[in-house]
């Protein structure tokens, strides 16, 4: 066998394998991607909430994209407590000013960042929220202070449509 012939074979093998791999990937990807959120799930992207009945010191829980969203009208003490915390004390440092643009209103996903349970209102060592599943404590700004959760509760995209309505998403 001459050397030239072997090289031709090598080229054919490599080319065939490469085309085969691309073809297989092109077939596999739709099989994987079909499991991602579909168009009907994505369509439910935003929700409007009437907050006129909410008095200070109370929380409204609404469902957005299948997850609870806490809308808390905070009292002055809660705001003061949240704003007095030094950044060094926080596990996931975020200023309360950034989390609640309008200090009276705290809007966040009511989902513990540990493993996704719904934390309980007005519980825990920091007067905020407490997750009963694995014992994470959140403060009055929804920031993680103690326990296994790695991050603060997430603040979703939202805006005040008018004085009485919040649009989430």
């Amino acid at each position: 066998m001459s050397e030239k012939k072997t090289k031709r074979r090598d080229f054919l093998f490599t080319a065939t394998t490469a085309v085969g791999a691309v073809g297989a990937a092109a077939v596999v990807w739709p099989m994987i991607d079909q499991m991602n959120p579909d168009a009907s799930v994505k369509a439910l992207a935003s929700t409007e909430v009437d907050i006129s009945a909410l008095t200070p010191g109370n929380t409204l829980t609404v469902l957005w994209r299948g997850k609870p969203v806490f809308i808390r009208r905070r009292t002055q003490e809660e705001i003061d407590e949240a704003r007095a915390v030094k950044m060094e004390e926080l596990i996931h440092p975020e200023k309360d000013e950034d989390r609640a643009k309008n200090p009276e209103w705290l809007v966040m996903l009511g989902v513990c960042t540990h493993l996704g349970c719904v934390p309980l209102n007005d519980k825990g060592d920091y007067n905020g929220w407490f997750c009963p599943c694995h014992g994470s404590h959140y403060d009055t700004s929804g920031r993680i202070r103690k326990g296994p959760a790695p991050w603060n509760m997430e603040v979703p995209k939202y805006e005040f449509v008018n004085a009485n309505t919040i649009k989430i998403g």
């Binding site: 994987i32 499991m35 991602n36 959120p37 579909d38 799930v41 994209r65 299948g66 997850k67």
Partner: peptide, 17 residues
Amino acid sequence: VTWLWGGYSVDNPTLTR
């Protein structure tokens, strides 16, 4: 996680798969 759920939380797409 979103891929496993087929949405933004455990819901019908999660149940069927």
